[in-house]
Amino acid sequence: MFAAILLLATTMAIFGVLGYLKGPKWAFISLLILSVAFVLVEYRPDTIVLALNGIYTGVMLVLNGGLGALASGDFEAVQEVYSEIDPLFTDQNENLALLLVIFSAVALGLILAAVMKSKPAVFGMIWGLAYGYLLSAAVLPLISSNPAATIPVPLLRPNEREAGAAAAQASSGLNQLFTTLAEPQNVQIIASIIGIFIIVLLLLTVRSGVKSGAKKKG
């Protein structure tokens, strides 16, 4: 779960910055594209798998000479070629098909980012942060079997998924880790580390900043 939070925070930070740099227009259009992909993945996963398998089968049929057999009216040969083609996505790997749709939407957004020109704006960052959140909400349940990784998305994902035995099993290790960390002697050590880190980070940053500023003036 900690990895999920880290992924969520990183994605939001990246797209927040990208949204700021590319402007609100790009960020909003990309968010709309991703929302459509998200709704399709959430509500029509079977249709997506069926469509992608259909496209794959059609392409393989053409590549294996099925189109020639079809043109000559040899339907038995077409049937033979067709029966040799295994579907690309099955129940075991249907999450890959859904990830493909999500990443296609992201790729489309990134292509738009390269094409569109706009000025940096704070509103872009807000849309970008929303984009990062939605992207994490779409991807996390597909790459993690832990139902606890399902992030709430109002309106787009109304039904909360039930936490099952798998979630309990996966989170028990982390629970143990945090319980150990929460012991007083460990907290004391962690607090000391945080304190030293903050002091060193701030004072060194200020000092180096003052030095570089003085050099520039000098």
């Binding site: 939070i5 927040g16 910055v17 942060l129 992030i151 709430p152």
Partner: peptide
């Protein structure tokens, strides 16, 4: 992990993004 922690961790992440900008 409950929503309270998530909310605060997301706020910290947002501050990180603001810092970069």
């Amino acid at each position: 992990m409950g929503p309270v922690e998530v909310v605060f961790l997301v706020v910290i992440a947002i501050f990180g993004a603001i810092g970069v900008v």
